[in-house]
């Protein structure tokens, strides 16, 4: 327990300070405080609490059902172009913010996905999720979306490859949090 508190020392300080600030604001009707709570914090908290628990349960189930050999075969080091396409497809149909992708990346890596594929996954995850694309087309037009996608895909595959190399070369490891 003390180790837990120590690991998250900074985070708990922020949370406690913020809680005190919010209680103070509500009690004394301090408007900026109420504004921050209602317009910003509450919206983010909602998004987080809707997206993340579901994500983590999926990850847990994935962990117990899918074998390492299977992941390795499909998106491991020797999976080539097929692996890249597969990992992009996997990312496109998911939802949620960038930070929701990190735990997925952790489990994929643990199960033997190649380093470049996990970085390509990370880029694709945020670049072109199907539900978000409908939003984008609605507000910015089909032409914009298509052009952005066509330009983004090669750029971010390249970044994925560079990051994968860098990650392996420096013997990077993904930590379980």
């Amino acid at each position: 327990m003390t180790e837990y508190l120590k690991k998250y020392r900074f985070d708990f300080s922020v949370i406690i300070a913020f809680s005190i600030f919010i209680i103070y604001s509500l009690f004394f009707q301090f408007n900026p405080g109420i504004d921050i709570l209602k317009n910003n914090f509450w919206e983010f908290l909602k998004e987080m609490l809707i997206a993340l628990p579901v994500m983590f349960i999926l990850i847990g189930l994935f962990d117990v059902w899918v074998s390492k050999e299977r992941v390795q075969r499909h998106i491991g080091d020797s999976s080539g172009v097929k692996g890249v396409l597969l990992v992009m497809l996997l990312a496109f149909v998911q939802a949620g913010p960038l930070y929701a992708a990190f735990p997925v990346v952790y489990i994929l890596k643990k199960k033997g996905a190649s380093s470049s594929n996990i970085f390509i996954y990370l880029s694709s995850f945020t670049m072109a999720k199907v539900p978000m694309l409908t939003f984008e087309i609605g507000f910015l037009g089909l032409e914009f979306s298509l052009l952005r996608l066509i330009l983004s895909i090669p750029v971010f595959i390249l970044i994925g490859l560079i990051m994968g190399r860098y990650f392996d070369k420096h013997k990077g490891a993904l930590n379980e949090v």
Binding site: P53, F56, I57, I59, G60, L61, V64, W65, E176
Partner: peptide
């Protein structure tokens, strides 16, 4: 197996 998976997920969360 399902319980184990859910527990793993919740712990990470």
């Amino acid at each position: 197996k399902t319980w184990r998976g859910i527990k793993k997920g919740v712990k990470q969360f």
